[in-house]
């Protein structure tokens, strides 16, 4: 049998490396990595229930008696109630707006035969390579000018959270348009054509035919944007410094600062848990759907 012939080579160096050593070592490393990740997440949760002394003295032990009050301390000290509300509203509204703006644009860019479509797609993709550093200064300037302009001339009030929302949305457009354009190009056009022949206008075709077809990619960009906005820190620090305007990562950073001075580590870990666990739950819930649509957009 031919297989026995092949198997005889098991101990050749080439086979030893390519079939035994390399795969085994890698598998081992991957499992170690998995264990580390799970342990770290569990460890953070465990620390959040300890007294601050225990965090240092027995970093690996279980808490003597769970200190649920750490959560109350962290929640109050960092103003997490308003921060959680801000983060939730900004993240959901922002992610929705990003997709609402990017999806129609990506659709026409992917389908159009106009000569400008190609260069315009590239123009959006270029935004991915503009580092945030380049626009930080203008954003601070715009933030200050917009709020004084609105207060003095238009509405009589302004909320910097709106500025933050607008910039978080705009800065996420390039990546989202890029992924969606790639995905939509890979979709067959027959169903759309049939819909249009039935007399559906472009908007109806888009909403009722294209969006359902592109659901995997939509889910992916939506979830990636939710993750991105939930964790975004630099813009939040620059645009919304006031406690009631703060988002969770900014609140955590400020909690980090004040807990450091008072060495209340249990409460710090409670704060980390409040920030991290919701994302993990979301991730477990949506599971692998997150990554499914991703390559479809990026690779094809």
């Amino acid at each position: 049998m031919s297989t026995t012939v092949v198997d005889r080579g098991v101990w050749s160096p080439r086979r030893l490396f390519g079939d035994v050593l390399l795969p085994r070592a890698t598998t081992l490393a991957l499992w170690a990595w998995v264990v580390f990740n799970l342990a770290l997440v569990g460890w953070v949760g465990l620390q959040s229930l300890k007294e601050s002394g225990e965090v240092w003295i027995s970093p690996f032990g279980f808490p003597d008696s769970p200190q649920w009050s750490n959560y109350a301390t962290a929640w109050k000290a960092a103003g997490f109630s308003s921060a959680a509300l801000n983060s939730t509203v900004l993240t959901l509204l922002g992610s929705f707006l990003i997709v609402a703006l990017a999806a129609p644009a990506a659709y026409v860019l992917a389908r159009s035969t106009r000569r400008v479509a190609g260069p315009l797609t590239g123009y959006f993709a270029m935004g991915m390579s503009i580092p945030l550093q380049t626009v930080v200064i203008p954003i601070v300037v715009i933030k200050l000018s917009v709020s004084s302009f609105m207060i003095d001339w238009v509405t009589g009030w302004w909320d910097n959270r709106i500025t933050l929302l607008v910039f978080q949305v705009v800065l996420s457009l390039p990546f989202t348009v890029f992924v969606l354009t790639g995905y939509l190009r890979s979709l067959p056009t027959e169903i759309e054509e049939a819909a249009e022949l039935d007399g559906a206008g472009p908007l109806r075709t888009f909403l009722q035919v294209v969006l359902p077809l592109a659901k995997p990619a939509m889910t992916t960009v939506l979830v990636l944007n939710v993750i991105g906005l939930w964790n975004e820190t630099l813009l939040a620090l620059l645009i919304t410094p006031l406690p009631e305007e703060r988002t969770l990562p900014a609140a955590l950073l400020s909690l980090y600062g004040s807990m450091q001075y008072s060495s209340d580590w249990g409460a710090l870990f409670a704060g980390i848990t409040i920030l991290v666990y919701p994302m993990i739950v979301l991730y477990l819930w949506l599971g692998r759907r997150i990554v499914e649509g991703m390559t479809a957009g990026i690779g094809k």
Binding site: N231, L275, I280, I290
Partner: peptide, 14 residues
Amino acid sequence: RSVVFLPMIISLIA
């Protein structure tokens, strides 16, 4: 694959 992706969703500050 799910677990190695996990750190990606956690804030770097945390």
